[in-house]
Design a protein around this nucleic acid. Structure first.
Lengths: 163, 163
DNA sequence: ATTGATGGTTGCATGATGCAACCATGCGGT
DNA sequence: ACCGCATGGTTGCATCATGCAACCATCAAT
């Protein structure tokens, strides 16, 4: 059977995974952040099959994460560039990388370190905070229905909203 | 052919996806953040097939994201609880949700809003910043080899490190 | 004209997924 | 003790997605 769709789930995580959840997709985006632009760059960097790469890029273009722009002289060459929507995925990639740096590799064994280009300083850890900058754990957070919530979502979330 | 493994990729994003990249995995983790504990809770909340859910939970327990603890009276009942490693995925989920809130649903159409439980205030957007708290875009960031970098990684990243 | 690189598409074998059916255990009621 | 039901799975099977190899079309250089 075909993979189940997440579109209707009325949850941002599910929606994001609907676009990004394929096996290779986030790695293609990562490579684009590292500077990859052309089909062959992604292909060689990832070792991905051409048909899969072509399908993923097509899908990402459809979803507005990449744009396909003509490149080179007169030829049929083109590049795949991240759109603003694609560049907005930076926090997702940073969050994934930080998680495995800490919990898979362990501190002191990170393969890659992100630094501020201007100063060379390491970036501080990504933090989920309140408006005062205090870090929050999951137990400090309450999920409430937003304007786009379906009735089902509204009922699922305890309705002690402070709006 | 079996899916290609990302283990050897010497990149945190690939490592994280090796653990979390299956279609349902991050949604299971999301449900756990929302309070799900028992097999049937995940099953009904997600509408996932039992065999897939069982396989994913087993894998997540193996990877240390969940722990399986006995529950109830004498019975064979048990719960799946997030470990510290699992709870550390909060920024990943928040980043994914924020991305689709902004770029898929659009502002004003968010299905779910996260608030600080103590005050009811909305959480500020997750930001990738430098040590002075200034937000950085991808072009402001430089990737450099870390202590766990392979030779290949070292060569791939331009070696203008400021260590 | 030929060679090579780029950027794909097509076909096929195999693994992963979804669904339904079945199973084992514990518990509550009678 | 017996029945029924909920929980928490496992097993089988049909179908979809993936990986690999082969092939193709275009362009540039030789």
């Amino acid at each position: 059977m075909s993979r189940k769709r997440f579109d209707d789930m009325n949850c941002g995580v599910a929606q994001a995974l609907e676009t990004l959840g394929d096996w290779w997709t986030l790695l293609i985006v990562r490579d684009a952040f590292f500077g990859a632009r052309r089909f062959s760059e992604f292909e060689h960097s990832l070792g991905i099959a051409k048909n899969i790469l072509a399908a993923r890029l097509r899908r990402l273009v459809e979803h507005g994460v990449f744009e396909r722009v003509a490149s080179g002289a007169t030829g049929e060459r083109h590049e795949y560039r991240l759109t603003a929507k694609g560049q907005a995925l930076l926090p997702v990639l940073v969050a994934l990388r930080e998680w495995s740096d800490e919990w898979v590799y362990g501190r002191g064994h990170e393969p890659i370190i992100f630094r501020e280009r201007a100063t060379g300083r390491r970036l501080p850890r990504l933090r989920v905070t309140n408006r005062d900058g205090e870090e929050l754990k999951s137990k400090d957070i309450l999920a409430t229905p937003g304007p786009g919530a379906t009735l089902e979502t509204r009922q699922r979330l305890t309705p002690r909203t402070k709006d």
